[in-house]
Amino acid sequence: MCGHRCATASFEDRSPCPFPGWVCSGRPNCARPVWELSMGQQRRLDLAMVLAARPHVLLLDEPTNHLSIALGDELTDALAATDAAVVVATHDRQMQQDLAPWPRSDLDR
């Protein structure tokens, strides 16, 4: 499995990263086994695997953590284009602004 949480993975920990551009940001060492990726890269891989599976529902808690600004923008674009129902919990002001047209529920403590 990739990282610790990726239920959709169909490759071994020692397999090369299947999303090298998105996970490794174009670095030349993207042929490294998944277990050698940094925790941030493993989390990006987890997210990429989930998005590639085209789920019906996405529940995302702080999805832009460990992402560069450019990758956060790409994620927002992907979320806007998906047919899935999406629930996002985020403190990321840029993502909140980008998703402002979406229905919103402010939860009290």
Results as ranks from 00 to 15, higher is better:
residue 65 N to Y: 00
residue 103 P to V: 09
residue 68 S to G: 07
residue 13 D to A: 12
residue 78 A to F: 03
residue 82 T to Y: 03
residue 54 R to P: 09
residue 74 E to A: 15
residue 8 T to H: 10
residue 49 M to E: 14
residue 87 V to N: 06
residue 7 A to K: 01
residue 97 Q to E: 10
residue 24 C to N: 01
residue 32 R to K: 12
residue 101 P to Y: 06
residue 80 A to H: 14
residue 46 D to H: 09
residue 77 D to Q: 14
residue 45 L to F: 08
residue 89 A to T: 11
residue 6 C to N: 08
residue 2 C to H: 10
residue 23 V to W: 01
residue 49 M to D: 11
residue 89 A to W: 08
residue 70 A to V: 11
residue 90 T to N: 03
residue 28 P to F: 00
residue 57 V to K: 02
residue 95 M to T: 12
residue 93 R to F: 15
residue 64 T to I: 00
residue 83 D to M: 09
residue 102 W to D: 08
residue 1 M to I: 14
residue 79 L to M: 03
residue 94 Q to K: 15
residue 67 L to P: 00
residue 29 N to V: 15
residue 42 Q to K: 10
residue 33 P to Y: 05
residue 69 I to P: 00
residue 20 P to C: 00
residue 74 E to M: 14
residue 23 V to K: 01
residue 102 W to K: 06
residue 82 T to E: 00
residue 92 D to H: 04
residue 64 T to W: 02
residue 16 P to T: 03
residue 81 A to F: 04
residue 55 P to E: 01
residue 35 W to E: 12
residue 10 S to I: 09
residue 28 P to E: 06
residue 35 W to A: 12
residue 57 V to H: 05
residue 3 G to A: 05
residue 89 A to N: 09
residue 9 A to I: 03
residue 83 D to V: 10
residue 101 P to T: 04
residue 32 R to M: 13
residue 91 H to C: 15
residue 79 L to W: 00
residue 70 A to I: 05
residue 81 A to H: 01
residue 102 W to F: 08
residue 50 V to C: 12
residue 79 L to V: 05
residue 98 D to Y: 06
residue 88 V to P: 05
residue 55 P to H: 01
residue 58 L to Y: 02
residue 43 R to C: 07
residue 57 V to D: 03
residue 7 A to I: 06
residue 2 C to R: 12
residue 33 P to H: 02
residue 40 G to A: 11
residue 95 M to Q: 15
residue 50 V to P: 08
residue 27 R to W: 08
residue 50 V to E: 14
residue 64 T to K: 00
residue 53 A to K: 06
residue 51 L to W: 07
residue 97 Q to W: 09
residue 29 N to R: 07
residue 34 V to T: 11
residue 36 E to H: 13
residue 3 G to V: 04
residue 109 R to V: 15
residue 87 V to G: 11
residue 73 D to M: 08
residue 46 D to N: 13
residue 8 T to R: 14
residue 71 L to I: 03
residue 22 W to S: 10
residue 38 S to W: 02
residue 72 G to P: 04
residue 53 A to N: 08
residue 103 P to K: 12
residue 42 Q to T: 05
residue 102 W to V: 05
residue 21 G to W: 01
residue 89 A to E: 10
residue 107 L to F: 13
residue 100 A to Q: 08
residue 59 L to Y: 06
residue 72 G to T: 02
residue 102 W to P: 04
residue 96 Q to G: 12
residue 75 L to D: 05
residue 73 D to Y: 07
residue 46 D to S: 13
residue 41 Q to L: 05
residue 42 Q to G: 05
residue 85 A to H: 09
residue 46 D to R: 12
residue 47 L to D: 05
residue 59 L to Q: 06
residue 83 D to N: 11
residue 109 R to K: 12
residue 24 C to K: 01
residue 13 D to E: 14
residue 100 A to L: 09
residue 65 N to P: 03
residue 8 T to S: 11
residue 52 A to P: 09
residue 81 A to R: 10
residue 63 P to A: 00
residue 19 F to M: 01
residue 96 Q to R: 15
residue 65 N to T: 07
residue 59 L to A: 04
residue 1 M to L: 14
residue 16 P to D: 01
residue 38 S to G: 05
residue 40 G to N: 06
residue 60 L to T: 04
residue 109 R to G: 13
